[in-house]
Design a protein around this nucleic acid. Structure first.
Length: 358
DNA sequence: AACATGGGCAACCGCCTCGCT
DNA sequence: TAGCGAGGCGGTTGCCCATGT
């Protein structure tokens, strides 16, 4: 037996608010103030649930709300706060005057988290790590035929209990070994493996650890220079990653040494970016496991990535919502200046955010 | 032109917290 | 101190519109 509903829902309006309802609610609150949401609808003459009234007021009708596009400063603030606070949208919103938790949450889910995902992808490719995807191949909405490229995020009902995962240490790849996941983690048949994507906050942490753990030789440029100023800035743009991630030249760049450490110099990357790809032939034997190379058009076809078309944003985040149990550990992620990453780590962090909003 | 798909976002649901009795 | 209820919060859903085929 569940808790009684907050109000009698029978006969109440649902869905979008009309201008008339907005007007009634606004005038009532201006006259009587906020609060007493339960009794407000009746007193104001609205056929709405009290919670619905509160939500409408808080998220839309309040006069001090800022509407419109998020500024780059706001973006940066969200990224920083989310890396520390996780999905505590209310807390994040408290640092962004005029923005609501709902608005920030939507913005994060539809914009920012994707940029971080792309960033991670690049890091994994450069490290020759297993191809990571969020989810098994989502089926088409209407058919069971072969999957098409990224489809609309699925909408599943997964409870918090379902999403808990016991551990998510940053240096530990999250591999779901549950029987259920056996069907969702597909054997690629080419030696590659699919690793379930962690929830967003963990994802960020993982991204950061991937960056920070890379071993840069003394005589190389800083990671900032390598990754952000000249490299990811270009290749992770929308067009870059989704359409033109061309490994013809990447194969010729000393991406990794036998120990799997990244050994890109700034000059290496610059040369790679400058090369138009026509003069250097691909070498499929050098391709990381789990990736296919389409020799016909010379473009990378990464299983689980855009070209392969089996990525599902929501699924990964939903299935492994790691933040709740690990938020304290993850607090030292991106923006903890006192962490042992030192000054270099701080610079990397700043540079990453710079890249994210460039 | 019609349909399918994807993106964005407002709104809803259900659980949790906290204050009051 | 336990029970109750209002409010708050995060996750999820559903609708609308844009874009692609």
């Amino acid at each position: 037996m569940g808790r009684a509903p907050c109000c009698e829902k029978v006969g109440l309006n649902r869905g979008r608010w009309t201008a008339e309802e907005d007007d009634i609610l606004t005038k009532y609150i201006q006259a009587n103030g906020e609060g007493s949401w339960r009794s407000l609808p009746k007193n104001a003459g609205l056929l709405r649930c009290g919670k619905s009234c509160r939500l409408r007021w808080v998220n839309y009708l309040k006069s001090d709300l800022k509407r419109g596009k998020f500024s780059s400063d706001e973006d940066e603030t969200i990224i920083k706060l989310h890396s520390s606070l996780g999905n505590r949208w209310c807390l994040i919103a408290s640092h962004l005057p005029g923005r609501t938790d709902n608005e920030i949450k939507n913005y994060w889910n539809s914009h920012l988290s994707r940029q971080i995902y792309k960033f991670r992808k690049i890091i994994q490719q450069l490290n020759h790590e297993p191809v990571v995807v969020d989810q098994p191949v989502p089926k088409s909405r209407t058919t069971d035929v072969a999957p098409k490229p990224p489809v609309k995020r699925t909408r599943k009902s997964i409870t918090k209990k379902d999403t808990k995962v016991p551990d998510n240490s940053p240096d530990q790849k999250v591999v779901d070994k549950s029987p259920e996941s056996a069907t969702s983690s597909r054997d690629l048949g080419n030696g590659g493996s699919l690793v379930i994507m962690p929830a967003t906050p963990a994802l960020e942490e993982d991204v950061m650890s991937s960056m920070i753990n890379l071993d840069i030789p003394e005589d190389k440029e800083t990671m900032d220079d390598i990754f952000l100023s000249s490299f990811l800035d270009d290749i992770v743009s929308d067009q870059g990653l989704e359409a033109d991630l061309n490994l013809q030249t990447l194969n010729q760049v000393p991406v990794g040494d036998p120990n799997g450490e990244l050994l890109l110099s700034n000059a290496d990357v610059e040369n790679w970016l400058m090369d138009d790809g026509n003069t250097i032939m691909p070498n499929p034997s050098l391709m990381p496991e789990g990736e296919k190379y389409d020799l016909k058009n010379g473009e990378l076809d990464v299983l689980g990535w855009d070209c392969g078309g089996n990525m599902d944003w929501d699924g990964g985040f939903e299935d492994q919502n790691l933040w709740d149990s690990e938020d304290e550990k993850l607090f030292s992620g991106l923006w903890e200046t006192s962490c042992d990453k030192g000054d270099d780590g701080d610079h990397k962090q700043d540079a990453i955010v710079e890249w994210l909003f460039s």
